[in-house]
Amino acid sequence: MAVSPAQRRYNWRVVILAIVYAAVLLPVCWLFARHLVHGPLAYLLGALPALPVSGFFVAIGLYLAQERDEYLRMLLVRQSLIATGVAMTAATFWGFLEGFDLLPHVVGYAWPIVWFAGLGFGAGVNAAIERRAA
């Protein structure tokens, strides 16, 4: 299947964001592991890795706005809805079990990771639906 111009732009955005994420996260983790930052700078650096992660969601939104092919947009919308369902369901179950002291605390940044895993699961669902339709 040919890649649309909107998909090409989306792919480049994701690659750039992934590079920025790694370039930010690694030194921030290094600094915090050695207790080299304190005060307001610690808050600034601690929040910094969230920016490229947030950028992934912006990239998806831009792709949906720029993609001209309605079918391709629908595939990503379905994939995103599946990802949202997976992440929110997992967070809800975990949250209740954690609240009843049955599971350990999970850091908040874990839930976008679950969402991205759900995005992969949604891609698999899309592929399975495609195979059944063929």
Rank of each mutant, 00 (worst) to 15 (best):
M1A: 15
M1K: 13
A2P: 04
V3F: 07
A6G: 05
Q7S: 10
Q7E: 15
Q7L: 13
R8Q: 10
R8Y: 00
N11V: 06
W12T: 13
W12Y: 07
V15Y: 03
I16H: 02
L17G: 05
I19H: 04
V20H: 10
Y21V: 04
Y21E: 11
A22C: 03
A22N: 00
A23H: 08
V24S: 13
L25R: 13
L25N: 08
L26R: 12
L26S: 09
P27K: 13
P27N: 12
V28K: 11
C29G: 00
W30G: 00
W30Y: 13
L31W: 13
L31A: 14
F32G: 02
F32I: 10
F32S: 09
F32K: 14
F32W: 04
A33N: 14
A33H: 12
L36A: 15
G39Q: 05
P40G: 11
L41C: 07
A42F: 02
A42E: 08
A42W: 01
A42S: 14
L44P: 01
L44E: 00
L45V: 04
A47M: 15
L48I: 03
L48E: 03
A50I: 01
P52T: 04
P52C: 02
P52S: 04
S54Y: 05
S54A: 15
F56I: 11
F57G: 14
A59R: 07
A59S: 15
I60M: 08
I60L: 12
Y63S: 04
Q66N: 12
E67H: 02
E67I: 01
R68G: 07
R68P: 00
E70M: 11
E70N: 11
Y71D: 07
L72H: 15
R73I: 03
L75W: 00
L76R: 15
L76I: 13
L76A: 08
R78P: 00
R78L: 04
R78M: 03
Q79C: 12
S80N: 10
S80L: 11
L81I: 12
I82W: 03
A83N: 08
A83H: 06
A83M: 07
T84R: 01
G85C: 10
G85E: 11
V86H: 03
A87H: 01
M88L: 15
T89C: 09
A90M: 10
A91F: 09
A91N: 06
F93T: 09
F93N: 02
F93C: 11
G95T: 03
G95Y: 06
F96M: 12
F96I: 14
F96C: 00
L97I: 04
E98V: 00
E98R: 07
G99A: 09
G99S: 10
G99M: 06
G99N: 08
F100M: 13
F100C: 03
D101P: 00
L102Y: 12
L103M: 14
P104A: 09
H105D: 06
H105K: 13
G108W: 12
Y109C: 01
A110I: 13
A110S: 14
W111P: 01
P112D: 10
P112H: 11
I113W: 09
I113S: 09
V114D: 05
W115K: 01
A117N: 07
G118V: 08
G118T: 09
L119K: 05
L119D: 00
G120A: 06
G120Y: 02
G122F: 05
G122W: 03
A123T: 01
G124H: 06
V125R: 02
I129R: 14
R131K: 15
R131F: 07
